[in-house]
Design a protein around this nucleic acid. Structure first.
Lengths: 335, 335
DNA sequence: TTGTATGCGTTATCAG
DNA sequence: CTGATAACGCATACAA
């Protein structure tokens, strides 16, 4: 690997001049610029990113932290950020928090220590206080899918409660009255908010809240299936089940079929997130659209604008959850 | 941010000593070690990764390049590598190649320039020659899902042809004779190899190859649906369709239902990769298991062993595609 | 066991 | 417009 010194030597100038042409500094004559370029080509020179980063305190990288690298949801988020930034020669460094506060902090520190110019965070275990403090720090931060009361300008989030409300409202609108709910882990704020939206919708329609119709699960298919089995054991009647996310809904579909329930005629199912899963299932899964791709893009644009001074010319619209009606939700057939 | 100098000053020793305790060098007295630790705590010292990387030419990072960040397949791969390495305090830097040779090279250079200690590559556009040259380079490389004749020791791959063979063989074993095949893009080696396996299975069973039963598609759901529609237009009879991957198979399911074909009784469908998708569909999708998670782990372990001298004690087994029988494949009912 | 001095490859601040 | 030269924060022979 050749260095800036060798280039300077071959071009017959000082390293500072080479550095200037490297960074497209205006004040450099066309002639020397050409000499330097020639030297760089001859030596097949490639600037050392690390050295550059050490000297400039920047890295042309933004750090992205998500809970898990597998999972389509985070893949979409990460992909959206990457695509947006890559178009402007910026790279991303991805790491995972695994829903654990220590690992999340560890990941965040790693990204900061790597001189990331900005951070895009999807965290769920770390406290609001920690995040608030982080926002005061030197490295710009964008927080996705979480609303920080103290610094809303750093957050790109969705109204999860509204989403939960919309889902259950749609179910009620189709005549269902006995509606089961399988939630994600209540310690996760989004799971809780979605459930609160569900409750609100019930309340608004004058339907009494029945705890025996509610099960807390994990955000996974298997857990959804187990939760549904539990629901059946309780021998309570219901004609629809609203789920905390699409994976749970998918588990419910399997479990329902295993129990001899035919879908969607005997049971309506609604998911949340509107991931690819929704289009894979049969019947296709009605779901609440979570515009995670758009939100990822928005995060990327925000950083492009605020950190790199690149005008993306696109205004970030507000993100509203919308209900996507599909075959898994059917009107209640009275009999 | 405090530096190693400030720590040394506060601890009353030289920077080299601080550096030693930092890197857990054996030759340092317990007393000074404690002094240094105290100083580090007082100053809330965190070593500068970049400076460390510049001086040591290492980074405790391995670079991972995949085609796309969304897509469960790559998510699983990346996640497997990450989990494996994270357990040993190593991080990963992920970037995407988007199936484009320029972007793939760009990504690889980026990772090398960032001083990655090793690379895990899933590339599809770049030439064998380029990769062979890369393998000669300074940075250790592990190539996933691609077999380089000149340097097999760098590759962790699966016998795609064998997989394709197995799939079609399973279909034949259930009495099917008119078997359609929807392939991925033939310019991708894995798509082509899978198709070759299909052909081989047909040949071995004495079934003539009929080009009108074959369609080349992209590796996506939509493309699979279109390909199936095309198949129907051709008015050729078939009782089963083998697909280049699960997404295509999923598109076929939708398109078949749209065409009024009932599944699985009237048409058997087989996918490839055995992704999560296979468990989401109804009927559940028979597929060829692609142990991408295990392969990702193997890549991680290989690097742990060979680059970081960490003995993972687990032998990397050979990876064989295995057919996973599920409801979407049914015996041909003669009538 | 500990300290000194130099290098890692750039950027950036001054002079000229 | 160009050239020395000091940071940047740490690792590492070499010396003590």
């Amino acid at each position: 690997m050749s260095t800036i010194y060798q280039v300077a030597k071959l071009a017959g100038c000082a390293v500072s001049t080479v550095s200037r042409v490297l960074n497209e500094h205006p004040n450099v004559s066309a002639k020397t610029k050409e000499k330097v370029h020639n030297a760089m080509n001859q030596l097949n020179y490639r600037p050392n990113t690390i050295a550059k980063s050490l000297a400039s305190q920047r890295s042309d990288c933004v750090g992205v932290l998500v809970s898990e690298l597998h999972s389509g949801f985070f893949g979409t988020l990460t992909g959206a950020v990457e695509t947006q930034l890559r178009a402007h020669k910026k790279h991303i460094i991805v790491t995972a928090g695994h829903g654990d506060a220590t690992l999340e902090k560890d990941g965040i520190e790693f990204l900061i220590d790597r001189n990331c110019d900005a951070l895009v965070l999807h965290v769920e275990a770390v406290s609001d206080e920690y995040l608030a403090e982080l926002c005061q720090g030197k490295t710009p931060v964008v927080i996705v899918n979480r609303e920080l009361p103290t610094c809303p300008e750093h957050c790109i989030s969705l109204d999860n409660e509204q989403g939960g409300f919309t889902a259950t409202q749609a179910v009620i609108a189709r005549g269902h009255k006995n509606i089961a709910y399988i939630s994600g882990p209540m310690r996760k704020h989004d799971a809780r908010e979605r459930w609160e939206g569900h409750c609100k919708a019930l309340h608004q329609s004058g339907i009494a809240y029945d705890p025996s119709l509610v099960v807390e699960a994990k955000f996974t298919q298997d857990s959804g299936a187990e939760a549904f089995a539990l629901l059946l054991q309780r021998k309570v009647a219901f004609s629809a089940v609203v789920c905390g996310n699409d994976e749970i809904a998918c588990g419910v579909m399997s479990a329902a079929r295993d129990a001899g329930i035919s879908l969607p005629s005997e049971l309506s199912i609604v998911g949340f997130d509107n991931t690819n899963i929704a289009s894979y299932t049969y019947p296709k899964l009605a779901s609440v659209d979570y515009p995670i791709f758009e939100m990822g893009q928005a995060a990327g644009r925000k950083i492009l604008n605020e950190v790199y001074d690149i005008d993306t010319a696109e205004k970030d619209s507000a993100f509203e959850p919308t209900f996507i009606d599909r075959a898994s939700l059917q009107p209640l057939n009275e009999r």
